[in-house]
Every structure is written in C-alpha cells, then in structure tokens.
Simulated scan of single mutants.
Amino acid sequence: MLDQGVHPNVITFNVLIDALCKMEKLEEANLLLNLMIQRGVNPDIITYNTLMDGYCLAGKLDFAGDLLASLQNKDNGPDVVSFNIMINAYCKNWKVNEAMRLYREMIAKRIKPTVITYNTLLTGLFQAGKADEARELFGKMQFGNIAPDSCTYNIYVDGLCKNDCVSEALELFHKLESCKFEFSIKVFNSVIYGLCKTRKLETAWELFYGLPNKGLEPTVVTYSIMINGMCKEGRLEKANDLLIEMEEKGCAPNVVTFNTLMHGFAQKNDTQKVVKLLHKMVEKKLSPDASTVAAVVDLLSKDEAYLETLKLLPTFPVQVLPK
C-alpha cells in the first residue's frame, strides 16, 4: 500500500487493529498503534476502544485499565463504550467492585450510562450475591430515565430468584404480566426455577404447561429445570416422563438433563434406571462430564454388587482433543 503511494487513514488502521485483536495478536496491534502515531495519523476513540476490548478478551485487564486511564489525558477522553468495555470485563472476572467504581466515575464525568451499562452491572452484582446493591442500581436506572429492556427484566428476575428473593421476583413478574409485557422464554425459565426452588411445584406446572398459550415453547433449559424440581421432590417417575415428553416433542435433552435425572435415581439406588440413562446418552452421542461421573460413582459406592453393575455400563466414544 505504502509502496504504491497510498497512505492508510485512521479507518484502515482501525480495521487492521481490530483484526489483530481478534487473533489475540495484541503486541502487533499495539505496535500498529505506535506506527500510526509515528505516521501522523491520530488514533480516534474507536482505535483505543478496539485495543482495550482486545486486552479484555485476552484477560489482560491491567493493560486495558492502563489504556482507559491514558484516555483521561486525551482531548476527547473516554466515551460510554470505553467504560462499558471495562465494566463488562470486570464483571466477567468477578471484580464487580471495580466495575461499580467505574460506574461512579462515569456519573462524576457526566457520561450517561446506557441500558448496556446497567444490564452488565446488574448481572455482575447478582452473580456476586449483592442483591441489595442490584436493587439500588435498578432504582437509579429508572430514576435516570433509562428504560429497562427485556434483557434487563430477564437479568433482574433471574438474579432475584437465584439470590433467594423469589417472592420479589414473582411480584415483578406478575406486575409486568398485567402490563401485557411480552416475556421471552428466559424469563419464564427463571420464574419456573424460582418456583421449583421454593417447592411451589404446582404453580411451576401451571406456568410450564401454559407456555404454548403465550406463544412460547419450552426449551431444553425449561425441561431440565422442571426435571430437577421433580427430582428434588422425589417424583422421579414424573421427571422421567418429562424426559420422554420432551423427546416426543422434538426437544433434544442435553448432558445436564441426563445428569439431573441420574443423580435423582442414584440417590434412590435405582441402578437399572441410571444404567438405562447412560445407554441413552451413548445413543444420542452425548459425552459424559464430571457430573455424570459423580452420579455413577455415587451409585457404585452404595451398590454391593458394583462389579456386576460395572459390566452393565456402556462405553463412551473417546473424545479426541483438538491440537
């Protein structure tokens, strides 16, 4: 390009830096940043955000943080995307306090957070078990005239259910329902999970079987949640019926579904059912994981005829790891 007298502009450099970051060639991306500055091409905020995101994706949060700090001295400074990138990285790495520090810094600098900012922070706070702080942030979001979207409500309802605030989640769910809010299947999964967790199985059943009336179909996650709820209540045959039902309706069970059922039957020392489920996994070409192994070990440890049981176990295909 340079040999032909064509000089790359900031857009060209940004595309190249983005490509290098996606290939995790961060050293080369940084060298390219220095080259563009040497050639008198001023990097824009997209350049810095791209490189910052690259560092975050590679887990190099210190480098990304230093880059964000260096932007404070630039004429335009960081924008909302810059902060969102770092907040997302901190939350994903269980550093929600750092994420909240950046949120407060945004507010102080009069950079208005977006719905993405709030969704990311709510996810991080609930993940860290900070339900009270999540409630406070949800209130600030509404006070700041940032309208929650379907993703926000899904995060909020799910977070409440997983942090033992099921009644509050249900209250919000019913309030939204009365406002004709269109829920995704993810919200229903969260509510059904909360109901099963608090042993309100009949209400969970009503929601579960009412999904088609709302134009929704249960997913493998929905079925797995219901199967887990049944297993915890000792209703193993009903749980097994659900496995059969989901297959008949074209919803393929995954390893989590099978593990849930196997753990339930293993606790009841039902060797025959566990072995049958293992063979079914082989038929469906599903690979066992640590939870599958744990269920089998649990069963064998309580089985006096474990040597005979071992002969009944299927052989799973050997998984070749990519080089």
Rank of each mutant, 00 (worst) to 15 (best):
G5D: 11
G5M: 12
I11K: 10
V15I: 14
V15S: 14
A19G: 11
A19N: 06
L20G: 08
K22I: 07
A29D: 05
I45M: 11
A58N: 08
G59K: 12
A64C: 10
L71H: 13
L71I: 13
D75F: 09
G77C: 03
N84L: 08
I87E: 09
N88Y: 14
C91T: 07
K95M: 15
E98F: 12
A99C: 13
A99Q: 12
M100G: 01
L102K: 06
Y103R: 02
I107F: 00
T114G: 02
Y118P: 06
T123M: 11
T123I: 09
A128P: 07
G129R: 02
K130N: 05
A131Q: 03
E136D: 10
E136F: 09
G144L: 07
I146M: 10
C151R: 15
C151S: 12
T152G: 08
Y153D: 08
D158N: 13
L160V: 00
L160A: 00
K162I: 03
D164E: 13
S167M: 10
S167G: 09
A169H: 05
E177Q: 15
S178Q: 04
V191A: 07
L195M: 15
K197H: 13
T198R: 15
K200G: 06
E202R: 14
E202N: 14
W205V: 06
F208C: 05
N213S: 14
L216W: 01
E217V: 14
T219P: 04
T219I: 03
N228F: 02
G229Y: 01
G234E: 08
R235C: 07
R235V: 03
E237S: 05
A239W: 02
A239Y: 04
I244R: 12
I244K: 11
E245K: 12
M246P: 05
P253D: 08
N254L: 01
V256W: 05
V256M: 08
V256R: 07
T257M: 05
F258T: 04
N259C: 06
D270T: 02
K273R: 10
L278H: 01
K280P: 02
K285I: 00
A294V: 11
A295D: 00
V296T: 00
Y306R: 14
L307T: 13
L310Q: 06
Q319T: 14
P322A: 07
